[in-house]
Design a binder for these strands. Sequence first.
DNA 1: TATTGTTATACTCTATAACTATA
DNA 2: TATAGTTATAGAGTATAACAATA
Lengths: 150, 150
Amino acid sequence: MAAEVPGAAGESPLAGRLRLAIVRLNRRLRAQRTDAVPAPITLTQLSALSCLHKHGPLTPGELAAKERVQPPSMTRVIAALEEQGHVSRSPHPTDRRQCIVAVTDAGRDYICAEVTARERWLDQRLAELTDDERAVLARAAEIIDRMAGA
Amino acid sequence: MAAEVPGAAGESPLAGRLRLAIVRLNRRLRAQRTDAVPAPITLTQLSALSCLHKHGPLTPGELAAKERVQPPSMTRVIAALEEQGHVSRSPHPTDRRQCIVAVTDAGRDYICAEVTARERWLDQRLAELTDDERAVLARAAEIIDRMAGA
DNA sequence: TATTGTTATACTCTATAACTATA
DNA sequence: TATAGTTATAGAGTATAACAATA
């Protein structure tokens, strides 16, 4: 019997191994729960908040596109972040259907503390690797992001 | 303003970039819906089924440990797979609390078709990469799996 | 008493469909 | 009529707590 799930129609074992690796690390990352600073936020919320912090103010639609989720999904994420004071909404200057979502000063402070706490587990795992292995992951992160964005 | 989320307490940018890459590819993988052969199964179910196929019959507890989820989560996955005829339960030879979960013949046939359909998107993305990039991902998959298992 | 597994419950994540307001 | 966003609803994924059966 094959040790790998067989490639019945020419499937590369790489796809299967990569899928399993992604699914498992994703579980681990989501399971990290910080008893952190003001109140914990979820990984999805942190991801959106980091995106706003990196790119500057965006409309909900732009943010959904950058995070590659559907607009209704982003609506809920923004609502949760707004309720906790991490982001604010202001009117769009020319289109009253849209709005501008921006990280608040409090949100900016929060990111520094929360990202650090949130990624402590991952940082520790990375610290246990060799320089060479970290270089592989850095390249892989870039490639994976490109694939996910395709 | 920093282009990256700042490492307020020495956080490596690698952690943030890797986290985003994992989260985004995971979303894409889960979004793949096969109108496939008998009936579609979810990515979590496929992962457990592949694990059983690879390792042979396991108890629910062993399977949960291998997939790194809690036992109640695996209970539901096994129930779904059993209902669809992909796995069967038999009594444990020496311990009546436990049972042995095994892939059925039908389940084995299913894996070949479903894995292929399910990973078509990923295979296409991989096919667009260079040999060198695929080699990076192969190494990264091994490293990530090791980290997730830590 | 400890272990294996299941049931009950709840919360996160995400999508599609339908709706509202504005362009 | 087309677009941006929201609300309603549903299903996947996962966890913790409480329970039952067996060791």
